[in-house]
């Protein structure tokens, strides 16, 4: 088991959002304020860890013909638990994310990791994978949120800081509100992925140079 490698993969080289392009519905739809991004990120991470652990533990018991149905049932169970808990204890978040909480069921990150990783690896490795992929997802969401909120509403930390109003950085009359609308979602994600591709190229070149120097 290689924790550092898995962490690197989750964060950058195999980031669920920017490289695997999984779970894009929620990435585009709810990234309008920091509160949403962090909330969604944590909800998905929690579900991902639980489902990875359970599916990995049951991987030898579930016949392969019905594995997808079995995985979906397990995932839907965890999602409903999180949905109910949020409704009861953090109603503001549940209201703000709305239908995208139940839609975590079909968030391809979770099914993708279940099928691609948890069904083939040990419980411990799957748990680590859940944590790393979850963190990678959360970071990608937070970046999207910060950019869209700053350009679209001119604030930082909406829903969290300064009594929920967020800290105003750009005066109210200037922000381009298209950025919090669908257009901004597509554009921001495009630029974020382009940025990460550029970063990975740079890192690769650096590594090559290092090896050449050796």
């Amino acid at each position: 088991m290689n924790f550092k490698k898995q962490f690197n993969e989750g964060l950058l080289t195999k980031n669920p959002v920017t490289v695997q392009l999984l779970g894009m519905c929620s990435t585009l739809a709810i990234t309008t304020s920091l509160f949403n991004g962090i909330g969604m990120g944590l909800a998905v991470t929690a579900i991902l860890i639980c489902s990875n652990i359970l599916i990995s533990a049951l991987r030898n018991f579930i016949p392969s013909q019905i594995r997808i149905a079995a995985y979906i049932t397990i995932i839907a169970g965890f999602v409903t638990v999180v949905d109910l808990l949020l409704k009861a204890f953090i109603p503001a978040l549940s209201e703000s994310l709305g239908v995208f909480i139940p839609l975590i069921v079909v968030n391809c990150i979770i099914l993708g990791r279940a099928e691609g990783f948890a069904s083939k690896n040990t419980v411990l490795a799957s748990a680590v994978d859940g944590i790393c992929q979850g963190i990678g997802y959360t970071i990608a969401l937070v970046i999207m949120c910060v950019v869209r909120e700053l350009l679209g509403s001119g604030t930082f930390g909406g829903g969290l800081l300064n009594n929920g109003e967020g800290i105003r950085i750009i005066p109210a009359q200037f922000p381009a509100m298209q950025m919090v609308m669908p257009v901004g979602g597509f554009l921001t994600l495009g630029f974020v992925i382009a940025g990460s591709q550029w970063l990975m190229k740079r890192l690769e070149m650096k590594n090559k140079k290092k090896e050449a120097a050796k």
């Binding site: 392009l21 669908p182 597509f186 495009g190 630029f191 992925i193 382009a194 591709q197 190229k201």
Partner: peptide, 14 residues
Amino acid sequence: ECFKGFPIALISAG
């Protein structure tokens, strides 16, 4: 170079 593939597609979708 860095926009090839999905980034440019996303921007067209935008």
